[in-house]
Amino acid sequence: MGWGRSSPPWTPVVAIVRYRKPNIQRPHPPHWERAKVLKLVIPQYPDPLKDLPFNLTCEKNTMYKDLNKKTGLHQYEKVMVRLIKKRLDSSRMVAVLHRNRTTREDEFEANLLIHKEGMTLRSYTDNLVIEAVKETQFEPITSLFVSQQSLIFSEEPKVAFLLKAVRKMPTFTLLAAIVDGSFLSVSQLNWYSRLPSLDVMRAQLCSSLSSLGSQLTNVLTHHPSELSRCLDERQKAVNAPPSDST
């Protein structure tokens, strides 16, 4: 007798059960053919000191030191450079600060103050920033990277807030900033902070441009309009009925 229609549908349940631990520490040797391929695939780099004479490979020789010297950036440093580049490109305002000796607590408080306005305070090693800035619009920053310094990134140019915030951070001093692609000194930043917003400035420019045109037309049409006014008055005086004279 088979399953009747009235019986409930049977659903298979799969439960994975592990009866022993996986063998990770001492894996079994691979198959002979596979082992041959694996052996062949291992990369073999040429030894730079292999064919050199003993006098050059001596530890005290300067040549030996040069051979072992690090060339270029480390892989991690390259990642950091890419990160800095990304951050520089995405921010409209980049400020450079001189950093005196700061404790972690002070740095955290400064960062907290700035973070509320959507800015970030970061300090990188000099060579990374110089590498990231090479052949970009931010290249003039490199002249400021001679001592201890850190950077502030902001997506919006909040210069007035920056100047106010730097006063509250005693261990940092503002050196310069790049705002919308232009390199500004501290005095220029002070001037910039006093300016109204960009939309207001545009409206002012439009009004000044339109006022110039209207002023010119006024000047040009001054004499003809004066003449026509005088003529009108004269005509009125001539056409007017004579007043009664007794």
Partner: peptide
């Protein structure tokens, strides 16, 4: 002036005098 070619010496002096 941060753009002076030899501003490094003064900035380092500032850094040194800030040692606790």
């Amino acid at each position: 002036d941060p753009f002076h070619p030899n501003a490094q010496a003064v900035r380092e002096f500032m850094f040194i005098t800030s040692f606790p």
